[in-house]
Computed example of a mutant assay.
Amino acid sequence: MLLDLKDIRKSFGEVTILDGVSLSLDRGETLALTGDSGSGKSTLLHIAGALEPFDTGEVLINGKALSGLGDAGRAEIRRDAIGLIFQQFNLIPSLDVAANIAFQARLAGREDKDWTAKLIERLGLSDHLGKYPEELSGGQQQRVAIGRALAGRPPLVLADEPTGNLDEATGDAVMDLLFELTETSGAGLLMVTHSPRLAARAGRRLHLRHGTLTE
């Protein structure tokens, strides 16, 4: 199993956000997570991505448990096994498009220039490699973020509202690419979205409500 969350519980003060959440994801699967604003979707995704601690339960990524890892171990998991795509893009403003795309793959020591070239071509970024994030449209920045997440061929891709800052047409085009490229790379995709229409495109869908998951 690529990603396995077992009975995850998370509270902030007296407020329970996740109340015994379990889910699993394997390579090649796509899973959409929906829920109302404030339901804990992003918190769950961040826990799955070794970005946020949990109170009880266990998270396994490629069979490796997160609960026994310190900050360095979690950072290694993120570097080697996870591609992250955020709503706010989170590109590095001082790096051009080419360097932003290659950034995580180089950190992980898995830069594949042929694969990166294919990504750049498919993402329609060939004419923008020397530009900086501030010179790009929102849709172009999200394409760069997808390229960065996939350049190192991570087994697990996590996307947090990847079209939240885009208009519908641009968002649809970005999602077309995200689904296509994760399938090409053989990754598993867990996506948080507020859109039932986008969620319906995933192979599986789960809804988070009152801290628990339903089909």
Rank of each mutant, 00 (worst) to 15 (best):
N90A: 13
A173H: 04
L95E: 08
S24D: 09
E135D: 13
E215G: 06
I8A: 02
R27H: 12
D36G: 10
L178W: 05
E135W: 08
G70Y: 07
T16F: 03
I101V: 13
T116K: 05
D36W: 08
K10V: 00
A99G: 05
I85Y: 07
D4R: 05
R106N: 10
A187V: 12
L189S: 01
E52N: 08
E58K: 10
R78Q: 06
G13Y: 15
L66N: 00
E29G: 04
I77C: 09
R122H: 12
E29K: 08
I8G: 00
G35H: 02
I101F: 09
E135V: 05
H210P: 04
F103L: 06
R106T: 15
A105C: 10
K6P: 03
D4M: 03
E29M: 06
P196S: 01
R205F: 06
A117V: 01
G152S: 01
G38T: 12
A169C: 06
E135S: 07
D167N: 05
I17S: 00
G152P: 00
P155D: 04
L18Q: 02
I47Q: 02
S11Q: 11
H210A: 14
L25T: 09
S24L: 10
L107P: 03
I61G: 01
K64C: 04
D36Y: 12
I92L: 14
A117G: 14
V174L: 01
P53G: 01
R122N: 12
R79L: 09
A81K: 10
H207I: 09
P133N: 07
L3N: 00
D26V: 07
R110W: 15
L178R: 00
L213G: 09
A173F: 05
F179R: 01
